[in-house]
Amino acid sequence: MVRLIRKESITRRITRHVFLSVGAFISILPFLWLITTSLKPPNTLYSAPLLFPTHFHIENYIEAFQAAPFARYSLNSFIMSAGIVLTQTLFSAFAGYAFARIKFKFSNLLFFILLGTMMISNYAIVIPNFLTVNALGWYDTFAALIIPRAASVFAIFLFRQFFLSLPKEIEDAAKIDGCGKIRIFFQIALPLSKPVIVTSALFSFLFAWNDFLWPLIVTDSPQMRTIQLGLSVFQGRYGVRWTLLSAATVLSILPSIVAFLIAQKYFIKGIAGTGLKG
């Protein structure tokens, strides 16, 4: 592999790190606050320090975890997220490819209609969707949590843009060999799409994991609750239990961080780039 970076001067490297560090620090300020708060005894909530922990009141984590059946809620969230990630990624890769690479009638119009549905506020579609799910007999089931979100315009758009930027020449050879579009998709385009697949899967996961309103509306029994609904036990009608909420929030973020760690491995120069002509 070609080494990309020529030797840089020390000052340049330092400048780069200073720039990146300052930005990174600002990025994580709120996260530091969450961790510090999650480790405070409740009666020091309002007092300094606010950013770096000096207390280590680890009991908050235990108490928070016991405040609701979080093991069950996490399991539900995992099942729901896995279902949404798999379906959204697969279906969106299909559709994104069709929009980017196949000429068909009204292709642009259809895509624009789909894009348009992204612009309707989530709050406006909750009621009709609830009625649909209820009529289908899915109320309080995983079907209600997964199927209505099995497709995503956002992800289709992402895949479409990615396939547009893949050089078309690679496909032409296959086409001349007489391969159909679907075979080209599976044998050539999809294997080249790892970065966008992980990106799309990552955002599907984050969307599913953090969703609150829809699971609230379509589930009823405690056995079907998801983790975000669980977090709301700390945001009481008559006051928020900050220390516990922070502890539970920190725990609830961990799977997202792991998901990101897995995904970011694919953003290494060369994986998709090798073998492609510019």
Binding site: F130, Y139, I217, S221, R237
Partner: peptide, 21 residues
């Protein structure tokens, strides 16, 4: 008894009332 997050109970009752739930 079923706990519903405080800010959402009215919304929850509203959708439930549309479907007899």
């Amino acid at each position: 008894p079923i706990f519903i997050p405080g800010s959402s109970i009215v919304t929850k009752i509203q959708t439930a009332s549309l479907s007899g739930r």
